[in-house]
Amino acid sequence: MEIPYTVEAHPETGLNNGKIGIWLFLTSEVMLFGALFATFIMLRIGSDGNWAAMQAEAELNIPLATLNTAVLIASSLTMVMAWASLMRGQLGRFKVFGWLTVGCGGIFLVIKYFEYTAKFEHHHYPESSTFLAIYFAMTGLHALHVIGGMAWNAYFTGPGSKLFHTNRQWLTDRVEHSGLFWHFVDLVWIFLFPVFYLL
C-alpha cells in the first residue's frame, strides 16, 4: 500500500509528508530547548549576583569553543552542499559532502570530549554549581542531538544512498529533511556558545 504524498507534493500545501513532519518535530525541539533556556534565565536571575563568579570558577575554554562553533558552521555548509549536489544529480559529490558533514560532527564531539574531561580533571562536576549543572545539561543534550544527526546523515550517505538509483527525488527530500534537523542543531549551538562562554 502506498501512502500518498510521500515523495510528490500535496497540491494544496505544496509539500510532501516528510517536510511537514520534520518541521513539526522541530517545533517540539524549539519548546524543549526553550524550556531549558527558561531554566537558565531563572537560575541566572535567582543567583543573587553569583552567576559571574560561578562562570569564572568553571573556567570554560573559549578558544576551543570558538573552534567548535566554526566546525559546526562548516558542517552546516557541507550539509547544504550535500543537498545541492543531489539536486544537481551528482551522487559522488553528495557522498563526499555527506561524509564531511558526519566528520565535522565527529570533530565537534571530540573537542567536546576534551572540554568535558578537562572539567572533570579540575573537579568541576554538574553538582559543583548551578552554572555547571545547566552547562552540562544543555551542552550534553545538544551533544546527543549531534550524535543523532550524525547517525541520520551517515545512514543516508552510506546504505540509504542506494535510493539514488530508484527514486532520486525521495533521497533528495530525505537529505533535505535530515539537513533541516542538522541546521537546527547548529542553530541551538549558535545560542549556547555566547550564553555559556561569553556572557
Binding site: 524549539v30 519548546m31 526553550g34 524550556a35 533556556f37 527558561a38 531554566t39 534565565i41 531563572m42 536571575i45
Partner: peptide, 8 residues
Amino acid sequence: FIALMALP
C-alpha cells in the same frame, strides 16, 4: 515559546 519564556 513566548509564553514559555515569560515563565522566568
